[in-house]
Amino acid sequence: MLSLKSLTKTYRTGDKALVSVDIDIPNGQVVALIGPSGAGKSTLIRCINRLVEPTSGQVLLDDVDVTALSSSGLRRERRRMGMIFQEYALVERLTVMENVLSGRLGYVGFWRSFLRKYPQSDIDEAFRLLDRVGLLAMADKRADELSGGQRQRVGICRALIQNPALLLVDEPTASLDPKTSRQIMRLICELCQERGLAAIINIHDVALAQMFVQRVIGLQSGAIRFDGPPDGLSPDVLTEIYGEEDWQATIRKDEDEDTEAAVA
């Protein structure tokens, strides 16, 4: 389980990016994090793995206080927090397989990874993951030969080969077309269910979040304004999170849209 207790981030300018955030996420639950630009979504994700240092509060992952760890302890704990990035963060000149195996860097050490001497068990797992996401035939292709959706699948495999307890996902569909966005969201949710993984997905597309996740948390000015099931995102709630907008059209899902999502 992931627990955030009074998590706060205040910058030296005095601006508050997060204001006493309290969240509990059980294993296996996928949570969408929504809110306007500047609401604190990316900061929240980065405070969890301490890419951004929180000002106060606690991050507990299975009772380990991440905020209290030393540098060496944090490096070990980060192996249990897989990160999936908006811009994929792949090494373009490396193959798909090499990019996936880079997720084992925290386990095999610098020289073994530099010499590309990974254990056979890691290689076998990489092949299994690539097969699961439909990229087995592309294991030897360079990353710069892939489409956006394929790159994101490689990023998913790289995160999962860490054998994490938690996935932190930052805008995974922002650079993708609508059909590929649905495929990626469905894949992430299915993999979390299969592995019993908790996940936080920072996502800008409210309708896409509603389509796939079990729980939505809405941030506004660094504070939680909504925490509940997707069908609780009424126009009034969305107005509180984002401001005035024609939310009735945004959250409406007609029969054709549901059918398209099911077959995509």
Rank of each mutant, 00 (worst) to 15 (best):
M1P: 05
L4P: 03
K16S: 10
A17S: 10
S20E: 14
I25V: 15
I25Y: 09
P26A: 10
N27R: 11
V30N: 14
G35N: 08
G35H: 09
P36R: 13
G38N: 01
A39C: 08
A39T: 06
G40Y: 00
S42A: 07
I45W: 02
C47K: 08
L60N: 01
L60R: 05
L61R: 07
V64H: 13
V64F: 11
L69F: 13
S70Y: 13
R75V: 14
R79N: 13
F85N: 04
E87I: 02
L90W: 05
N99D: 00
S102G: 09
R104G: 04
Y107M: 13
G109Y: 13
F110L: 15
F114V: 12
I123N: 09
A126E: 09
R128H: 11
R132H: 06
V133G: 02
G134F: 04
A137D: 14
A137N: 07
M138F: 10
A139S: 13
A139F: 05
K141H: 14
R142P: 06
G148F: 07
G149P: 00
Q150E: 12
R151K: 12
R153N: 02
V154P: 00
I161F: 01
I161D: 08
N163E: 13
L166H: 01
L166P: 05
K179E: 14
T180F: 01
M185R: 02
L187D: 03
E190F: 02
E190W: 05
L191N: 04
R195K: 14
A198C: 07
A199I: 04
I200E: 03
D205A: 09
V206Y: 00
V213G: 02
L219D: 04
I224W: 03
D227T: 04
D231V: 14
G232D: 11
P235H: 09
P235M: 12
L238K: 05
L238C: 11
Q248F: 10
E255P: 07
A262R: 11
